[in-house]
Amino acid sequence: MDVMTKPARRTAPASRLVRAELRWIFRRPRTLAVLGLLALIPVIMGIALTVADPTAASSGGPPGNDGGNLLPAAAASVLVLPIAALTMTLQMLLPLAAAMSGADALAGETSTGTLRGWLLAPVGRAKLLLVKALGVATFTLAAAAVIAATGILTALVINGDGTLSTLSGTTLSIPDAVGRVALAVGWVTLQLWAVGAIALAISAFTEHPMVVLASVLGGVIVFTVLGSLDALSWLHPFLLTEVWWSLVDVLRDPVPAADLIDGGLKAACYLAIGLSLAYARLVSKDG
């Protein structure tokens, strides 16, 4: 039979599984809706800021505005708008999107009974987790990239040419600015992988996707609250949410790398915890 390969093959190649997984993720109406919604956020921010303050489009920022805010400068800058949008969405919406992806990957598939199909094919459980993790990773990268892309486009439309000034008052070259946005997207994606890994771990323990979403949402809120309590300052270095504001550092010149690196390493720690728990649960779980 020509459709048969050597009987020696015990499991389908991982690349084929990943492709099937990605097709499934990006064919899903819910995924597309979430990406569409995220894409709208920089547009809304850009328009709102321009309407609220027409000078924002032409000048660096409105005078007399109470300082400490990234937003006034955002609409004007091809550099600032995508990063302001990423910073804002990273506080809640992007982690939720990552959680949704992690929830669908295991809990959702368990609840529809589709996970069993792959387990019976058979797909080894370690490989299954690998494929699922890559799926979540790709989705979160897409989510961050979509925000950056529409952020750049919105700023270009509002502003025409686009100013590339940093918070430190220097002006970047275009490749440099593109590099900064790419750095921001990469760093945000790494943070989202950490959230996604935790979501996958929770996802492996339940068959209700909503439980995963609720846990991640609750976790982000609790972490944020804990992070705002000065009495718990010893705990703050352990909270992933605490590092998320460091993204603004991308807009400083030269980039103060310390906090970004620290945040990246913390995300890697969460990633290790999440994936190992997810693996442990998945291999011992009844299919």
């Binding site: 270095p237 390493l265 720690c269 290790a272 442990a280 649960r281």
Partner: peptide, 20 residues
């Protein structure tokens, strides 16, 4: 499974501890 769970979580927590 238990070994992986403990090892991975410990490594992650240790890393966070070192960073903190």
């Amino acid at each position: 499974a238990a070994t992986v769970a403990v090892a991975g979580t410990a490594a992650g927590a240790l890393g966070l501890g070192l960073l903190a």
